[in-house]
Design a binder for these strands. Structure first.
Lengths: 253, 253
DNA sequence: AATCAAAGTGTATTATTGACACAATTGTAG
DNA sequence: CTACAATTGTGTCAATAATACACTTTGATT
């Protein structure tokens, strides 16, 4: 929670630069050590958790706003971003409204606004990411999907909706290029799929299917150093991958 | 195009009642005589075509705004509505901005706003629909997909995106309940699918597949009066249909 | 050198999809 | 009132895709 002075400064900047009534919230997925992770923020001096978010500059395309916000939180550019839903319940930002309503008159109080938020989900390479809190937050960190805190506002709903969308898309789109490092083994990729879908898959059938899509290139070297048989390394065939993104996998009909 | 006086009144009402910077545009699909139709509007005294749209009341959920707008345009309630994308290019409403910029000072000119528009698509029963123009429009009517006029703003893009989304959804969701009359024949339903997908399907395989989904009930009577063999009538099994909507068709994986 | 754990590979079975043909029904034309 | 044309209903076979499952190979560990 902001002090009155902080609030006043914050609101003045916001009102000057951003579109009113509109925010962006991002669900950033990363994959590490066999677990699906989400990037979350904790507000200063308070046990309050949020998804990374922000506002849209008055003359900024919304995709650019999302990507700007994520650059600030992760250090990454050219993130895979997908708009998935607008949350427009008039009561959704009530917590913020109540928290700050007595501190500033409504006219200059940014949080007396009702906000529609545009949800984006992002898929990023965990190890490349450098989590960085914003000016309202004390920490920005990764959390496993099974170990999430309670969120403020409707951010739990936003997260759930993002996850549902991601799971749905997995059925007809290639996913992985943005979540995996450049080179990876087939079991690692399988683990990603198993994590997103939350179910076990057959090793042999998974491999056959993945290779069948034609979006993988097998590297000529293997990953040494593990305690067992050295697995082959793969990377994505960008050209075919992009094509599959556009076309979709299953023709259906 | 509005006269100065009309504009002034329009802007005053709008600023008083609606959220600024946000609009809703709807792509309303209907199916009639074997053709996919879209509901469109033509502005008064001008050859300018738009999709049905409107704004969000200050304390109104966005789904409710979309459904209110469509009730006004079609007379229908409980329309199948699906939010599919937000269009947020800062230049997207430039045509309106330019058209009205000299008529009113920016401060009180609703159209000097930049607008993000939330796209909804709707599936409705053609014969139940009663197309009704809004206060800016001279006519509201159905047009076949192959016979569309040029649209103002980015409404051609919005329509195309809606159609793409609908086609995609057809692969993993049941579609039809909202577009077909209560009772229909299998060939009629097939025609709907063929129209949406824009390709011919095999009659026998279509029937097998549709029945396989378990969302259809065969009625005990047939449609008489046609010049040929009387086809059976079907209706949707609401319960299974709703379940399929939630679950999706193809488990995949 | 033996062992263990994980990785690579293949095959038989089953389910799903796609292609295709013939019989039944109805109104119309002769 | 019969033959015809158009359309609907239904079944089968082949190809393809999905699933289940087992053995062999490899590399580090002891």
């Amino acid at each position: 929670m902001l002090t009155k002075k902080e609030l006043k400064a914050y609101c003045a900047t916001a009102r000057e630069n951003y579109l009113p009534h509109i925010s962006i919230d991002c669900v950033v997925f990363g994959f590490h050590e066999g677990e699906m992770k989400v990037l979350i923020l904790k507000v200063k001096n308070e046990e309050a958790w949020y998804l990374p978010g922000g506002f849209v500059l008055k003359q900024e395309p919304i995709e650019m706003a999302a990507s700007r916000i994520l650059k600030e939180r992760t250090g990454l550019e050219k993130i895979f971003l997908q708009q998935f839903h607008v949350f427009g319940d008039p009561e959704r930002s009530k917590q913020h409204f109540d928290m700050y309503k007595d501190m500033l008159p409504a006219k200059e109080n940014w949080f007396s606004n009702r906000f529609l938020t545009i949800g984006y989900y992002a898929l990023v390479d965990f190890v490349e990411t450098n989590p960085t809190p914003d000016e309202l937050s004390a920490t920005c960190l990764w959390r496993g999907l099974d170990d999430l805190p309670e969120f403020r506002l409707d951010h739990a709903l936003i997260l759930k909706t993002a996850l549902d969308t991601l799971r749905l898309q997995l059925h007809y789109q290639p996913i992985g290029y943005n979540l995996m490092p450049k080179e990876f083994t087939m079991p690692e990729l399988q683990k990603l799929y198993e994590t997103i879908l939350d179910k076990k898959l057959d090793r042999r059938n998974f491999q056959r299917r993945m290779l069948g899509f034609g979006i993988l290139k097998r590297s000529d070297h293997q990953r040494k150093g593990g305690a067992h048989k050295a697995p082959f390394l793969y990377s994505f065939d960008l050209e075919n991958y992009e094509a599959a993104l556009k076309e979709g996998f299953k023709g259906g009909w």
